[in-house]
């Protein structure tokens, strides 16, 4: 991004012209709000996945202290899978991974590719394949 100062007639006024170059549709995505929408969706997904983890550990604690039986534990998970199990099936684009990495800087306990993929429901194999393909 370059900023150029343009001389104006008034001695008290300065005009600055900013020239910027954006890759692909990045600029259009930002001004049309598409990127903001994607960020919000990803953050919602991250919160929901952390909630799924919490639900599972709460249910397991209930099993350990005898509040529920082994059968109830299995049935609860089987009947409400979406509340307890994190899906890791999405193969993300490079842009999405880049966005996820930026967001993860502000999120606690994201120390590995597994953590990142669990948080945003990414397929860990697709992230690892991306790394292996580029580093070889």
């Amino acid at each position: 991004m370059n900023t150029v100062e343009i001389p104006s007639n008034s001695p008290h006024m300065k005009t600055h012209l900013t020239l910027s170059i954006s890759s692909e549709n990045e600029f259009m995505d930002i001004i049309s709000g598409k990127t903001a929408e994607e960020v919000v969706d990803m953050l919602f997904k991250a919160v929901n996945n952390r909630t799924r983890e919490r639900n599972y550990f709460q249910l397991y604690c209930n099993l350990l202290d005898g509040s529920i039986t082994e059968r109830e534990f299995d049935e609860t998970i089987a009947n409400r899978e979406d509340d307890y199990i994190i899906d890791e099936s999405e193969s993300p684009s490079v842009n999405k991974v880049s966005l996820a990495l930026s967001l993860s800087r502000k999120i606690k306990d994201v120390n590995s590719i597994t953590d990142l993929s669990s948080l945003f429901s990414f397929n860990p194999n697709s992230l690892e394949n991306l790394v292996l393909k580029e580093l070889v």
């Binding site: 890759s23 590995s112 590719i113 690892e128």
Partner: peptide
């Protein structure tokens, strides 16, 4: 069981891909 790849490597690859994309344009 899988041998894990460090997160740092993923960050490096994404940074490299983003730089390549900018140079190409």
């Amino acid at each position: 069981c899988s041998i894990k790849i460090p997160l740092h490597n993923l960050k490096k690859v994404i940074k490299k891909l983003n730089q390549t994309k900018q140079i190409e344009q």
